[in-house]
Design a protein around this nucleic acid. Structure first.
Ligand SMILES: [Mn+2]
Ligand SMILES: [Mn+2]
Ligand SMILES: [Mn+2]
Ligand SMILES: [Mn+2]
Lengths: 144, 144
DNA sequence: CCAAATTTGTAGCCGAGGCTACATTTCGCA
DNA sequence: TGCGAAATGTAGCCTCGGCTACAAATTTGG
């Protein structure tokens, strides 16, 4: 058997790890959005906005709590810890950059928003930096 | 409660659906690669290249068979159906386009290959078309 | 202020996708 | 040709992330 390509295996493993973190990232970002809008994030509202049943959101929040990203008390709202808020901020920034990049490439706005919701979780720091550099260049008129 | 944004919900739902198909797509592409290289895809080799234990690959292949994408007999190789081979071809093409786009944007080669393994599964047809159009433009020297 | 509506919690089901341990079959070669 | 090694199958375990059904708490308004 020909030797297996280590870069390829690494790619699959990284994709799996990132897919596992994707849900968690979306919840954290959503909770942060709701906190900004209403002062707190309620389970029902989190579930509604993510398009899942409320027990699904409850379970996800308990995973967030286990990871030290959120806190909550029974029948009360969910709040992010400092770590959670920091994660939310970076996730939000990355989301914006991915959408901007897609738009700059020529992806229609509605499609860009939809695709970004999945793509964002697989964009590494290095790739994000490349996106930002590209956007900076094209804004300076170097014609995207 | 302010009305929930339907586009956002749609984005989350689509991201979930695509994440669920991602594994299946990678298996099909891998089986196709191995068929081209060795004439058949063996469970052990599939597992090794995807970086998983062999029973994990076995279970995935039975899902592929259930979906009508592959066929196999006990202790023999795995083969794609016509539908499976068609899927493999489109997955492979999309993978190449995503890598090319990342490189054109300025992502380092190694990083591009790693990130593409996850990103590819969330690129819709419309976005793929935009990528192709962009690549065609920049190849014609319009300076990306 | 109390009853109804709403929200939240909890139990329990499912399939996907990981794993280890072990059984069985096939293959390669001495 | 037969035996040991390698490949494959199978059983059974786990977590995650969906769901429904139902119980309990909270909020609301008449
Ligand atoms: Mn997302
Ligand atoms: Mn997002
Ligand atoms: Mn992939
Ligand atoms: Mn791929």
């Amino acid at each position: 058997m020909s030797e297996t390509d280590p870069t390829q295996i690494k790619g699959f493993n990284r994709a799996r790890e990132r897919a596992a973190r994707a849900l968690l990232e979306d919840y954290v970002e959503m909770i942060s959005d709701l906190a900004a809008e209403f002062g707190e994030a309620r389970i029902t509202e989190i579930a509604a906005r993510l398009g899942v049943a409320h027990p699904t959101a409850t379970k996800a929040v308990s995973r967030l709590k286990r990871e030290g990203l959120a806190v909550s008390r029974p029948y009360r709202g969910v709040f992010l810890t400092e770590a959670g808020e920091a994660l939310a901020e970076s996730v939000r920034a990355r989301h914006r950059t991915v959408v901007a990049l897609l738009l700059a490439i020529g992806v229609p706005e509605e499609v860009a928003e939809l695709d970004a919701e999945g793509i964002e979780h697989h964009v590494s720091r290095r790739t994000l930096e490349a996106f930002e550099a590209y956007l900076a260049r094209s804004e300076r008129g170097e014609k995207g």
